[in-house]
Design a protein around this nucleic acid. Structure first.
Length: 573
RNA sequence: GCGCCUGUAGCUCAGGAGGAUAGAGCAACGGCCUUCUAAGCCGUGGGUCGGGCGUUCGAAUCGCCCCAGGCGCGCCA
């Protein structure tokens, strides 16, 4: 919604050659300059005159309506002093009317989207680096649902690796054979240690390593006994991993097991298509290899893509083709997969092969890794910060503060609040940064609840809640006597007005980061307002109601933004 | 070597389809709790936006070249 359409309309009427798109508004850099600025660069270009001349002409020649108190030319800009109450009323009214839907363009109504994310190998407890995938994916899902898409969230369970074979062997050494198909009698928390040990052993014990391969081969051949043993382990791990992710509010709709795609009929189509294009051969060592240069893949690097080993067993990337076709056949208009940056070339290779077989490829959303000061995290080597440990610590720290603050609340209530704060801190810390940036994990700064953090934003909501509790019943429609005059009120109000633009941009970019930045900036503007503009003790009755309604609108916008990030706002903290 | 990504204040990051004196937080220092929750606010100091050349009236933003870091490049998943 363009609240300044009346202003641009008058300009357009006076200068008929100017197009509406070329007249864009922005907040003024300083309140003294005015309440809103229009830039003249683009319009001046179409009129073929210098921008500052056009600005002067606009001020001189155009007759504006009653909402404009004063127009001033400032170089290439025209700054307007406005009847802020009039425009503020429209903005606040729009927000209060739309409520939890404010910001959505409903662009996904009647459309389906499929998002695959997380897809952690079912081995040990997830580390915070893996969680970046899950948080980005989950927020994209929330964004798409907010826009009205019917979203199906898929999780690909990679239950076919040699790593899993080694883990099965390692666990069986602890608890005995798993052939009965019952869950292993070992706590999930212990699996990391077993996994690290098994991998370390495979490094120097070549017989043990060979056993891992052998087990994988039998798994692929469909040995029911081996399948039961694998499934017992992968189910245990998947369940444990999902429990940790659920603490962050992340859930999935469909779990697809890699082992179900070993003999998928679509794979024959792929082979046939590659053959027809002369893009497949058996190399001197007996491997089945695709030569992607024959199907339009432009780089020398990654030109050769191995589909099957010499012994006939399939590679991960081969099975993945079948899985991807399965996903693409589910009739979704939007099909997204969240991948680590190390998969960029892999995804291009997959796309090339799929295209050759007449299938589309999913849109890939990439993110870079969270690394430790010592380097990359490695589950295999046990060099990790576990997500569960991190959440425990964050919750503990939050709980101490909450207990101190709210002595009258029960332990359950305190801990519910602390949990939300911990989730807010973790999710915000990850989601606010540009996903293609490496981040170095640091315990202290990650556990900070002050400054540019999720809890800071949640805190602004708690303050609003507190004011509105004390205010009592708030009229849900905005009256004719709505007042909005001061600079902090106006800055906040203008910020609230642009939330829909932020959502659109986030959806287009497939990135939650703009929403996170926006939530933070809005919370900051609210805090300035909070300190400078008393609500309950406002100078007039009309101002008291108006400010309370501005508070309510702010809470709506911030909590809508936070919910897109998977962060809850609360009444108290 | 080749491809993709990144380089902005001591540290962590915004801004990035060109436009008003480059913004936050952390850390440092100095203030503010009988006043809507101090997880807060105000103030001070701190930047040749990696370097160079170019396009433009105008470049942190676009192009080219260099430098530095991350990731990847035929039987891991």
């Amino acid at each position: 919604m363009d609240y300044f359409q009346k202003i641009s309309q008058k300009i357009l009427e006076h200068f008929p050659n100017v197009t509406p798109e070329s007249l864009t508004w922005s907040p003024t850099p300083k309140p003294e300059l005015g309440d809103v600025a229009f830039r003249m660069f683009e319009a001046a270009r179409t009129l073929n005159c210098p921008p500052h001349v056009l600005a002067a002409r606009v001020v001189e020649e155009v007759r504006f309506g009653k909402e404009v108190i004063k127009a001033t030319a400032a170089g290439p800009y025209v700054n307007f002093v406005l009847d802020k109450s009039l425009i503020g009323r429209q903005i606040v009214d729009t927000i209060l009317t739309a409520g939890i839907r404010y910001g959505s363009h409903q662009s996904g109504i009647g459309k389906k989207a499929l998002v695959e994310h997380t897809s952690i190998n079912p081995n040990a407890s997830p580390h915070v680096g893996r969680a970046r995938n899950a948080m980005i994916g989950d927020s994209l899902v929330r964004l798409l649902r907010f826009e009205g898409y019917e979203v199906e969230v898929h999780y690909y369970v990679n239950d076919m690796g040699r790593q899993i074979g080694l883990l099965v062997l390692g666990i069986e050494e602890h608890v005995g054979p798993l052939t009965n198909g019952l869950p292993p009698a070992i706590p999930f928390e212990k699996v990391l240690q077993v996994y690290v040990e098994a991998n370390a052993r495979a490094e120097h014990d070549s017989e043990f390593a060979a056993q891992g391969y052998d087990l994988l081969a039998q798994m692929e051949q469909g040995n029911p006994d081996v399948q039961r043993r694998f499934r017992a382990v992968t189910d245990l791990c998947l369940k444990g991993q999902l429990a940790v992710l659920a603490r962050l509010g992340i859930t999935y709709d469909v779990f697809d097991h890699e082992s179900d795609y070993i003999r998928d009929p679509h794979l024959d189509e792929i082979i046939a298509a590659l053959k027809e294009k002369g893009a497949i051969f058996t190399d001197e060592e007996g491997r089945l290899v695709a030569d992607l240069s024959h199907i339009g893949y432009p780089y020398e690097e990654g030109r050769y893509f191995v589909l099957k080993r010499a012994n006939g067993s399939s590679m991960y990337g081969y099975r993945d083709l079948a899985y991807t076709i399965h996903k693409m056949n589910r009739g979704a208009q939007v099909n997204i997969i969240v991948l680590g940056e190390d998969h960029k070339m892999y995804a291009q290779q997959q796309a090339a092969i799929l295209q050759a077989a007449g299938y589309p490829a999913p849109e890939a959303v990439y993110y870079s890794y969270i690394i430790l000061k010592e380097g990359k995290m490695s589950t295999r080597q046990g060099k990790v910060v576990l997500l569960s440990d991190f959440l425990d610590e964050a919750t503990q720290r939050a709980l101490e503060k909450v207990r101190q603050e709210w002595t009258d609340l029960s332990e359950e209530q305190c801990s519910a609040i602390a949990t939300k704060i911990a989730v807010g801190a973790v999710r915000f810390a990850i989601l606010k940064v540009n996903p293609n940036k490496n981040v170095v994990f640091d315990w202290e700064s990650s556990l900070s609840f002050t400054g540019d953090t999720g809890p800071y934003i949640q805190y602004s909501c708690a303050r609003i809640a507190s004011i509105l509790r004390k205010f009592g019943n708030l009229p849900d429609s905005v009256g004719d006597d709505f007042v909005l005059e001061t600079a902090p009120e106006w800055a906040l109000c203008l910020k609230l007005a642009v939330f829909p633009d932020i959502v659109r941009s986030a959806v287009e970019q497939r990135s939650p980061a703009p929403v996170a930045q926006y939530a933070l900036e809005t919370a900051r503007l609210f805090t300035t307002f909070y300190h400078e503009c008393p609500v309950l003790e406002a100078p007039s009755a009309a101002q008291k109601i108006s400010r309370a309604q501005l508070c309510a609108a702010t809470r709506t916008v911030i909590s809508n933004a936070l919910s897109l990030l998977g962060i809850e706002s609360m009444e108290r903290m």
